[in-house]
């Protein structure tokens, strides 16, 4: 294991995230990959509305802040204007799988050559822990005080599986960040996503099962256990689609 220090592409400022929130881990992975690929100078990131709304302050590349759910559309605008730049979005589950479902599905089906980092922590963190499209059956949230009842609130969305059915998708993979090994896997998956984009081979989405200790009412360590035992049981980790959609520069 080499020396460990903050990647250059992660700005040297404190984050606003709650203690133990795994957003920070995923931010670091993205920044490490940007460093390793040497693309900081040519990358534009797009932030969502949600807890990571201020991620534009944390990444050292150029950044844009999108309105709620529209990050894939904003990223499309960037990428179409500048096809040789690297464009990624960083979105939560409410942003990507509720209000921004249309933008997500259509960016995917167009094979838009962008990479989406999708943080699934089964709740709306920023607004205080309401039911998300990914909230598990029975899960208590601020707006499902008796637990999510699938008869009335419906079922959680398995985004990676859904997008894997679309021809424009080069990579749909679900990973988690509950221990060092899963973090290493998550990094490999995100790297793959950027690699597909650099080769102009299609849309990539990496879904990361993450924590929200604050709104789950758990210690950060217990929250990691919940990801491993409960979230990964409903949202199986793995690759759901992988392969170039097109081969412009291959």
């Amino acid at each position: 294991m080499p020396d460990f220090q903050r990647p250059k592409s992660l700005c040297d400022i404190p984050t606003h995230y709650c203690p133990g929130c795994t957003h920070g881990i995923v931010h670091r992975l993205v920044a490490e990959i940007i460093d390793e690929l040497g693309i900081e100078n040519n990358t534009v990131g797009v932030c969502p509305v949600g807890c990571s709304v201020m991620a534009y302050d944390y990444f050292a590349c150029d950044m844009m802040e999108a309105s709620h759910g529209r990050a894939p559309a904003v990223a499309t605008g960037v990428k179409r204007a500048l096809p040789d730049k690297v464009v990624f979005t960083y979105q939560g589950d409410g942003d990507l799988a509720a209000i921004g479902t249309a933008e997500t599905v259509h960016a995917a089906t167009r094979g838009e050559n962008i990479t989406i980092i999708f943080i699934n922590n089964t709740t709306y963190g920023m607004t205080g822990g309401q039911m998300a499209p990914t909230t598990l059956p029975g899960q208590v949230t601020q707006t499902t005080p008796y637990g999510r009842n699938t008869d009335t609130e419906g079922f959680p969305v398995r985004v990676s599986e859904m997008l894997a059915t679309l021809s424009g998708v080069a990579l749909a993979e679900r990973v988690a960040v509950y221990d060092p090994k899963s973090v290493a896997n998550a990094k490999k998956a995100i790297r793959k996503g950027f690699d597909f984009q650099l080769k102009k081979q299609g849309f990539s989405i990496i879904e990361v099962l993450s924590t929200c200790p604050t709104n789950w009412g758990m210690t950060p360590v217990a929250a990691l256990d919940r990801v491993k035992n409960e979230l990964a049981a409903y949202y199986p980790l793995g690759v759901f689609k992988e392969g170039a959609v097109r081969n412009f520069n291959a």
Binding site: S67, A73, V74, V78
Partner: peptide, 13 residues
């Protein structure tokens, strides 16, 4: 909605 947000991204470059 998507179209105007694509404009946002494009104009932002």
């Amino acid at each position: 909605i998507a179209a105007i947000n694509m404009v946002y991204g494009c104009a932002g470059t």
